[in-house]
Design a protein around this nucleic acid. Structure first.
Lengths: 261, 261
DNA sequence: TAGTGGTCTAGACCACAGT
DNA sequence: CTGTGGTCTAGACCACTAC
């Protein structure tokens, strides 16, 4: 006999039924997080295919020996990531597309590294100076107060890709030139315990001036991609303001936007 | 006498203490949402200044006649929005910066309209055709299957700003030319009950070809901003793929990124 | 040591979708 | 009608922070 519940999960049952999750209650990792990770892995590996129903939350909580709110918390975190969709009266399904890339503060160094291009960085300038009106406004400090100014040239395969000019509040971070050349600024900030939280970006384009063209080994008038960004930590304090210029022939921004209704 | 609790909230107490929230239990609006909205309004209006502590969740729940999980849900939604920060052992505070603009799927029409520029749109093309390899891959449909192709020229103050080329799965939406000229594509999709959920974007730059320059009233070789986007609805199905070209002299992308740890 | 948020439980009732 | 997710309650214990 086939009960309504069987039909709801499909005749062959939810793929989740054959999956066993291992929960370690003695672990410091929260239970909802352990469950979320294993669900995400199942989706990633295709065990849960797009469109598959997860089965209802009550059954799942009973089967796992968890309370329903805990299971909900795990599922909700994946809904927030865009991996699952909930529909009242229907159930929870895996989304149909395989858009997995999370939204991140794009760090050029990380972008290039993950693309396997082996970037190198040349620090052109690393010193302290009084903040200009524009820099002060963007960093939320007083005009004329001391800030660190950083100018870098980033290359791949021996050719320039971008010219990066950044301003940081003085005293926030020790900027060692050698480490700056071997890793990205954002990675250094993370290592220093600064947790980036959000950023405001403006992306535009313009033609290269003679000086810019020379620096980036482009021809004068070539199209350049420009980006201005202010980054904030988790308390909302501005921790970086930068103006970046990219060779459009060698770089483009690639990112994902999420809408929250 | 000053108790530790008084000190924790500051000598004058949390500004929240003098605020009265009105909760309507008969309303269909969830209680946590009512609370979240009123908290957000208090922050927006400066009643809760950056750095202010909210007071602990237990007291708040008692004072409001709600359970702690409900209060937590309200607070969590504002933490997700980046308006509040929680610190274990410390409390919940308002973030220090006034970065409030939410992350959104930027619709050029909405952008221009909110900037008060009064955009106009000219529909150059609106017809069905078989999907090319590229379009099919981006929309997740079979190559050669019918899609709607839409070409529009967007202007402000009588001058072109952007040339927009979009592809939509056939049968998704009725595209009335007149309405397309008076509103944006995204707004039409929302009206038709399609809830956009996420999008993948690539932003780059290049020099204008002769044809592009003519169409956008630029000079040949001028810097153009290019954007390619695939948008997905809440089930993860691709609902739009587009290639947009903007006059860099008249438009730039402005958006906020949020990091989720 | 005291206060905070972080996690978890075991129930409950409701609104909505599909039959 | 049944089954689903959406919301809500009233407790509990733990980990971290500051004093």
């Amino acid at each position: 006999m086939v009960t309504p519940g069987d039909r709801a999960r499909g005749v062959s049952g939810s793929p989740l039924d054959t999956l066993d999750f291992t929960l370690d209650r003695s672990s410091p990792v929260p239970l909802y997080y352990q469950l979320a990770q294993q669900l995400e892995a199942a989706i990633e590996h295709g065990v849960l295919a797009p469109g598959n129903l997860l089965g209802n939350e009550i059954d799942l909580s009973v089967r796992l020996g968890l309370s329903r709110p805990t299971v909900r918390q795990a599922i909700q975190s994946l809904v927030d990531k865009g991996l699952l969709v909930r529909r009242r009266g229907v159930g929870t399904q895996v989304v149909h597309s395989q858009v997995k890339r999370p939204l991140e503060l794009s760090s050029l160094y990380d972008d290039l590294e993950s693309a396997g291009q082996g970037p190198t960085t040349q620090v052109l300038r690393n010193e302290r100076q009084p903040a200009s009106t524009e820099v002060a406004a963007n960093l939320g400090v007083k005009e004329g107060s001391e800030v660190v100014v950083l100018e870098r040239l980033r290359c791949t395969h021996g050719e320039p890709v971008a010219f990066l000019c950044n301003y940081l509040p003085s005293g926030l971070l020790e900027l060692d030139g050698a480490r700056l050349e071997s890793t990205g600024l954002y990675r250094m900030m993370r290592t220093a315990g600064i947790t980036l939280h959000s950023a405001r970006q403006t992306v535009g384009a313009r033609s290269a001036t003679a000086a810019e063209a020379k620096r980036l080994e482009e021809s004068e008038g070539a199209a350049l991609l420009t980006m201005q960004r202010t980054a904030y930590d988790d308390t909302g304090r501005a921790v970086e303001f930068g103006t970046h210029i990219y060779r459009a022939s060698r770089y483009a921004f690639d990112f994902q936007l999420l809408m929250r209704p």
